[in-house]
Simulated scan of single mutants.
Amino acid sequence: MGALRIAVFASGQGSNFQAIIDAVQNGKLDVTIELLVCDKPAAPVVERARKASVDTFLFAPKEYPSREAYEAEIIAELERRGVELIVLAGYMRIITSVLVEPFYGRMINIHPALLPAFPGVNAIQQALAYGVKLTGVTVHYVDGGMDSGPIIAQRVVEVADEDTEDSLAVRIHAAEQALLPGVIQRIAQGRVTLDGRHVRVSSS
């Protein structure tokens, strides 16, 4: 069995995408990154892909009549490349059933909070506004809801009294970059099993 073929979807800086690239190059992640999918052609993540010689599928959503239309194009590209796992890493677009259904159980997302708390956008700001003492990051399967899919792994980040959104974001992003490649590796090793809402991760 060859290395797991993955595609990464991202919209912005691409720090989690870079963490995946680094883990592959350091021999800690047994996957091949077949494609970066990005809805913002000028985003910094695109340059990261170019430097790592990762192919890109870039699109402008406004040029399509619907989300379903561009997702159909994306699926064709993923299937052509034999992609086995989609990793959403800072992809800021709502995903429809066109993409979710054929890839259910094969699409994961990383979210900057301890789900089910603070789903959706501005999760770090939500946590600070609520006054929680602990927040963190979650890797979960995508089920079509708003950050509602089965949870694979989480990592806790403490919130300090003096934290600002920026200072907390630094630690949240560090936790994301530490957690995500390891989860992908466990999936690549066949150690992650999805059973309804429950995800089991075996130790070997």
Rank of each mutant, 00 (worst) to 15 (best):
Met1Ala: 05
Arg5Ala: 09
Ile6Ser: 00
Phe9Cys: 08
Phe9Met: 14
Ser11Trp: 03
Gly12Tyr: 08
Gly14Trp: 01
Phe17Cys: 00
Gln18His: 05
Ala19Pro: 07
Ala19Gln: 09
Ile20Trp: 00
Ile20Gly: 04
Asp22Ala: 09
Ala23Gln: 08
Gly27His: 09
Gly27Lys: 10
Asp30Cys: 01
Thr32Cys: 02
Glu34His: 02
Leu36Asp: 06
Cys38Ile: 04
Asp39Gly: 07
Val45Phe: 03
Glu47Cys: 03
Glu47His: 07
Arg48Val: 02
Lys51Thr: 10
Asp55Met: 07
Asp55Trp: 00
Thr56Trp: 00
Thr56Ser: 10
Phe57Tyr: 14
Leu58Arg: 05
Pro61Ser: 10
Pro61His: 08
Lys62Pro: 12
Lys62Phe: 08
Tyr64Asp: 09
Pro65Cys: 04
Arg67Tyr: 13
Ala72Trp: 03
Ala72Glu: 13
Glu73Val: 11
Ile74Ala: 04
Ile75Leu: 15
Ile75Cys: 04
Ala76Cys: 05
Glu79Trp: 00
Glu79Thr: 07
Val83Ser: 05
Glu84Ala: 04
Leu85Ala: 05
Met92Asp: 05
Met92Ala: 05
Arg93Tyr: 06
Ile95Cys: 02
Ser97Glu: 15
Leu99Val: 01
Phe103Lys: 08
Met107Ile: 14
Ile108Leu: 07
Ile108Pro: 11
His111Met: 12
Pro112Leu: 07
Leu114Asn: 10
Leu115Asp: 12
Ala117Glu: 15
Val121Met: 15
Asn122Gln: 13
Ala123Met: 10
Ile124Lys: 03
Gln125Arg: 13
Gln125Met: 11
Leu128Ser: 12
Ala129Gln: 12
Tyr130Leu: 09
Tyr130Asp: 05
Gly131Cys: 13
Val132Ala: 12
Leu134Ser: 06
Thr138Asn: 06
Val139Trp: 08
Val139Ser: 10
His140Asn: 13
Asp143His: 06
Gly149Thr: 15
Ile152Ser: 07
Val156Gly: 07
Val156Ala: 15
Val157Thr: 09
Glu158Ser: 15
Glu158Tyr: 06
Ala160His: 15
Asp163His: 02
Asp163Gly: 08
Glu165Asn: 10
Leu168Asp: 11
Ala169Pro: 02
Arg171Trp: 06
Ile172Glu: 14
Glu176Asn: 03
Glu176Asp: 03
Leu179Val: 13
Gly182Glu: 15
Ile187His: 01
Gly190Met: 11
Arg197Asn: 14
Arg197Met: 09
His198Lys: 14
Ser204Ile: 13
